[in-house]
Amino acid sequence: MILAIIENAFLSLVGSAIPASTVVVLAATGAMLGERVGVLNLGQEGLIGIGAVYSVIAVLSWGVQSPWMAMLIGMIAAAVAGLVFAVCVVAFRASQVLVGLALALGGIGLSNQLGTNRNGTLIKTLFREVNPGGVLDNNDLMSAFLFHDPIVYIAYVGLPLVLWFVLFRTRHGMNMKAVGENPAAADAVGVSVTGWRIFYSVLGASLTGAAGSYMVLAFTPSWSPDIARGRGWVALAVVIFAGWRPGWAVAGALLYGSMISLDTTAQARGWGLPFMGASDLSFFLSMLPYVVTLVAILIPAGAVKLGRRVRSTAAPAALAIPYAREER
């Protein structure tokens, strides 16, 4: 009996946290990609909005029938915005913080403007869950990890694996890290710092755009203004928590998503705290994801202080520092 309750709660909590965290996983991976080559893009919030709204436009106005194509369009739109950002901060060496904030605010404003008249219109072109086909029914404990849409598997397994392999097992990844850690050295061995930085920050922006597309093509099947609702900022925090390692980003995003799931699941299932009324509990649970995010960021900072794993959790040394060959 108790086991069944625990199993049921686990299914509900994890089963809902996984798709809910996908947005943050994708955005955090995108942000990390740029930061690994030394480009800090604070505009995640805006890029999510741009990716989402262009996917909505693709479906509702351009008649796109496939969620994959709609997501690709969202990614391209975010990549264009990312290119503008990259040209500003890499080619013109503008402050990454300022241009990033401008992209965050501008992206939200632009996407809200483009989304006008499309508010709340339901989208039917959705990613559908993959049915593993008769092997397991959806009451099995494992089914919390199954019965999700394909983007979930790409975001949680495919992308981190590819990124991990490239970063830590290839010469290409060594060069990427060099561009982020010591661009002068990379430059000296013939790596085009400008080219790599622009390429990877644009690629990262397109992944963040995919996060926005995922919101409207799988999770909440309609456009609404300010759709990111702070998830872009959470993604930036998750990158720090993860110490710029792809697998840890997944863990960080899942932690945040679990807290949001805990909020709704605990209330729906009547889990309470003895010293707190249900109304107060709802406020407490709403706060929890952000408190946990904050605490989670302190963990790597604490690790640095204690002298443990400093190498792997520190930020890329040249993060947010524009590179100019003659100034090295």
Partner: peptide, 23 residues
């Protein structure tokens, strides 16, 4: 009841809806 501390956050509303529908 599930209270989500907002009138307008589609993703949170979706999670609340799923949590209630699951029960």
């Amino acid at each position: 009841t599930v209270l989500v501390s907002t009138f307008f956050d589609p993703q949170k509303a979706a999670q609340a809806a799923n949590a209630l529908l699951d029960t």
